[in-house]
Write a protein that binds this DNA or RNA. Structure first.
Length: 507
RNA sequence: GGCCCGUUCGUCUAGGGGUUAGGACGUUAGAUUUUCAUUCUAGAAACAGGGGUUCGAUUCCCCUACGGGCUACCA
């Protein structure tokens, strides 16, 4: 079994946006698959039609595409084990459920949802299982002829697994090690719903078997239902083909406690979904990492280090490095609180280490969004190189790069006006004259020298004119070296900005 | 409540029977940058508690506490 081909799957239900915890599960699946030259499969778990959300499946596909984690088999690319949508596999599951009934490992149950709700309310610790199944309406408690009659009459019913008595179910989790459960504590989970759809419990086992899944990774919230799945693998006679399990630690709220939810993002001001999600029903728009200006490389990187490390001090990894270094043994057991500050740091690092050319299209888009159309791509690249060290999120490029393309819309007058003097006006007039006369004046070095010489001549200090000059060109107290900006802007533009600003400063 | 899982700086984590308990984010101070950011240097900051085992536990075991998950005809 160890030489079995590695096949892993990510099996989301299409109910809304893709949570960052989901993306991390995808990532770990993907890394493991690629590291072992295996297959990564996307399977859509849409067995609950009441929760089905239009567009969610497509959205999930788009998220994976954005992240660069493309499945080898999926509903859209197909594959040898199609279909990959459980709703399209519906007919399959009943057969296995009936087989379990036949073998005595499952049974029909006719109780209504209302009856069960009543029991849960009235009986402390009510569980549909060992203690109560005999007093409920099912094929175990009812006489055979009555069951047949009910079935013949088409009475709505579910099929439940019959959890055995007094057994200990244990298994080896790749992350947690030995885990065990007492069957007396496990309830008789529904396997097949009244509408004929399987529940997750049945579907995950049947499909993992049929799709030859070798390793099953999922969030820790699934741990309590693991014994049901183990039993199913056994009862269905597939035990020797059962995948190895790994229950991933959860991603927790940064402040309080509990699983991170999209509500936390709204409350604390950061995204939780990979990409912005629009819920057509509620009209609610939930922001995503992509739209906020995260690079997919940074997003993946920060997700990878949430619960995993390579044992060294390295924190920045490319996807290829992650594939090479990833190992389940180095995944931590404890949940991790999400830290948005660190997330931003990852993005800043990735922007810094990215080539200007790889940032180009994203930056163009941000500028275009603000009405700036870039016509000279080389100029853009130069600008990006000059400023990328001071950008944390992609939209920061607007503030940092905008003034290279258009005159400042407003000036930080508070920084200059109170200390403005006529001598300064003289200085900038003289500077303008100099620029008009000397063609070579804007070669960064010589211009800087000329600027300083002029400064001395007017008995001004750098502190008197450097900042005003910056604000003339940039509008505010930020940006790279002023002389670099001036030389990039060019002589004509610099002259024009000095003139424009001088008016505002002396008004 | 029951069951399951977990617990090293504020956060993500490394480590592991004898260490000055390491790194990163954040934070503080300083240097550089006559802008802002980057960069650099330095600092503060952690083994949940109690019992064992041991010459010696933060590390191994047990208990407690705390945290989290599950407890649906949802995944």
């Amino acid at each position: 079994m160890t030489d079995k081909k590695v096949r892993v799957r990510f099996a989301p239900s299409p109910t809304g946006g893709l949570h960052l915890g989901g993306v991390r599960t995808v990532l770990f699946n993907y890394l493991f698959a690629k590291k072992h030259h295996g297959d990564f499969i996307l399977r859509i778990e849409d067995t609950d039609q009441s929760r089905y959300v239009e567009g969610a499946e497509e959205y999930i596909l788009d998220c994976l595409k954005w992240c660069g984690l493309q499945p080898d088999e999926s509903p859209v690319v197909g594959g040898p084990y199609a279909p990959y949508r459980q709703s399209e596999r519906k007919a399959l599951y009943r057969e296995y459920a009936e087989r379990l009934v036949m073998q005595g490992h499952a049974y029909y149950a006719f109780d209504t949802a209302e009856e069960l709700d009543k029991n849960r309310k009235e009986i402390p610790n009510f569980q549909y299982g060992l203690a109560y199944r005999d007093s409920l309406r099912n094929s175990l408690s009812l006489p055979q002829h009555e069951v047949d009659a009910l079935l013949d009459a088409g009475t709505p019913h579910v099929i439940r697994i019959k959890i055995p008595e007094d057994e200990t179910i244990s298994f080896h989790d790749l992350i947690r090690g030995h885990v065990s459960f007492e069957t007396n504590q496990v309830d008789d989970k529904v396997l097949l719903k009244a509408d004929g759809m399987p529940t997750y419990h049945l579907a995950v086992v049947v499909d993992d078997y049929l799709m030859k899944i070798s390793h099953a990774f999922r969030g820790e919230e699934w741990l309590p239902s693991a014994p049901v799945h183990l039993l199913l693998w056994d009862y269905l006679g597939w035990k020797s083909d059962m995948p190895q399990w790994a229950h991933l630690p959860l991603i927790l709220k940064p402040d309080g406690h509990g699983k991170l939810s999209k509500r936390d993002g709204a409350r604390l001001g950061f995204p939780v979904y990979a990409m912005t999600w629009f819920d057509a029903k509620t009209g609610e728009l939930t922001p995503g990492f992509r739209e906020l200006g995260f690079l997919p490389e940074a997003f993946l990187n920060l997700l990878a280090t949430l619960g995993w490390n390579d044992g060294t001090d390295q924190e920045l990894f490319t996807l290829d490095e992650l594939i090479e270094k990833f190992s389940l043994e180095r995944v931590s057991k404890a949940g991790a609180k999400f830290d948005f500050e660190k997330a931003k740091w990852f993005n800043a690092e990735w922007i810094k280490k990215s080539d200007a050319s790889s940032l180009q299209s994203a930056v163009s888009a941000v500028l275009a969004d603000k009405g700036i159309v870039v016509t000279n791509e080389d100029y853009l690249l130069t600008v990006i190189n000059l400023i990328k060290d001071r950008c944390v999120l992609i939209p920061d490029f607007y503030q940092q790069a905008g003034y290279f393309f258009e005159q400042p819309k407003e000036y930080d007058l508070n920084a200059v006006k109170p200390k403005w003097t006529d001598t300064k006006t003289d200085f900038f007039n003289a500077l303008t004259a100099l620029l008009n006369s000397d063609q070579a004046a804007l070669e960064a070095h010589s211009f800087e020298e000329a600027f300083k010489a002029l400064m001395d001549e007017k008995a001004l200090k750098a502190g008197d004119v450097m900042l005003p000059f910056r604000i003339m060109l940039v509008g505010g107290k930020f940006g790279p070296h002023v002389f670099d900006i001036a030389s990039l802007l060019g002589r004509q533009e610099t002259i024009s900005r000095i003139a424009g600003a001088l008016e505002a400063f002396t008004a």
